[in-house]
């Protein structure tokens, strides 16, 4: 018996869909630039403590508001702290918030969206109702409400725990900030993921290969996790790369408004906020964190666009 020819993709060795996508991504210069910038930033954030020339907290009141120089590439702020060190630590804050918030939002969104899309019914209706409600309230307002209403009870509870145990961890106000910022941001970030996953699952669950999997007698759980969700991964990856950038900007926005991470923990947002008050005299205090934030945001957008093209090859040829 003769068999038909085996078709292999033109170049490279026969590879997976992911390898094809990677090849397309590499051809996109902007996406590669975005990827390089983000990789650099991740490295800087990860190895921050070994890279910073100064301690980000140590003040030097003899060297306040210095313009950029060899000793202080981004200058110093009004307390004589090295701005470069603070920007680097701000990157740690930004990445930590962005990654954790996106991870939590993604987890909630994928689980709820997949179940709603796959099984439908009352759960689906209820979930769509909740996402509509959450998305209809302005994000900033929602976070302000959550922070304002939860901050005091949590602070009081922490204080009580401290007095009970004398464990200094309960005196660390940064933890409150992070928990509140993460929590409220995750709370407003998951509905778009849930809707995206639900829409993907709705379109995939009736594809022939899902019917074929059913005809094999596979259980719903296996069909959902091995046949439906992996095929929804493309748009989700694009959404995550955009979502990371959005979360980073969101954190900066909240810190800028004073409802996010509080000083002395460095965040680009509160640095911009501080710099804005004195920018006519000391523009470098505004410029350094703002420029870094802008570059990172643009990098995320380039990468997101590139991923979108790479993972949806049908749109091009």
């Amino acid at each position: 018996m003769t068999a038909g020819p085996i078709i292999t993709p033109g170049d490279d060795r026969p590879g997976s869909l992911w390898r094809d996508a990677w090849r397309r991504l590499r051809r996109n210069r902007l996406a590669v630039a975005g990827l390089v910038i983000l990789a650099l930033l991740v490295l800087v954030a990860a190895f921050g403590p070994w890279l910073t020339p100064y301690d980000f907290l140590s003040q030097n009141l003899d060297a306040r508001n210095l313009p950029p120089s060899m000793a202080h590439p981004f200058g110093t702020d009004d307390l004589g702290r090295d701005v470069l060190s603070r920007v680097i630590y701000g990157a740690r804050t930004a990445f930590l918030v962005a990654v954790l918030v996106t991870a939590v939002a993604l987890l909630i969104g994928v689980v709820l969206g997949a179940i709603a899309g796959f099984y439908g019914g009352a759960f689906d209706k209820g979930l769509m109702w909740v996402t509509d409600m959450t998305m209809s309230v302005p994000q900033l307002l929602l976070v302000v409400v959550i922070n304002a209403s939860l901050k005091q009870p949590i602070t009081l509870w922490m204080e009580a725990r401290y007095l009970e145990t004398l464990n200094p961890i309960y005196r660390n106000s940064a933890i409150i900030d992070f928990v509140l910022v993460f929590g409220s941001m995750a709370l407003i970030s998951w509905p778009p993921y849930a809707r995206l996953v639900r829409a993907q699952v709705l379109s995939i669950r009736n594809r022939p290969y899902v019917t074929a999997a059913r005809a094999l007698g596979l259980t719903n759980r296996i069909i959902l996790t091995r046949y439906v969700l992996p095929n929804a991964a493309g748009p989700l990856i694009v959404a995550v790369s955009a979502g990371l950038g959005t979360a980073m900007v969101l954190e900066s926005a909240f810190s800028f408004l004073g409802i996010g991470v509080n000083p002395p923990t460095p965040s680009w947002g509160n640095m911009i906020s501080d710099g804005l008050r004195v920018w006519t005299n000391y523009p470098h205090l505004l410029l350094a964190p703002a420029a870094v934030l802008a570059v990172v945001t643009v990098a995320f957008n380039f990468l997101g666009d590139g991923l979108n093209d790479a993972l949806n090859p049908k749109g091009q040829k």
């Binding site: 869909l17 290969y209 019917t211 074929a212 094999l216």
Partner: peptide
């Protein structure tokens, strides 16, 4: 056992 009509779309593309 089942064999379906369209072999182009009846196999999971990512497996």
């Amino acid at each position: 056992g089942f064999i379906f009509q369209d072999p182009m779309t009846s196999l999971n593309p990512v497996m």
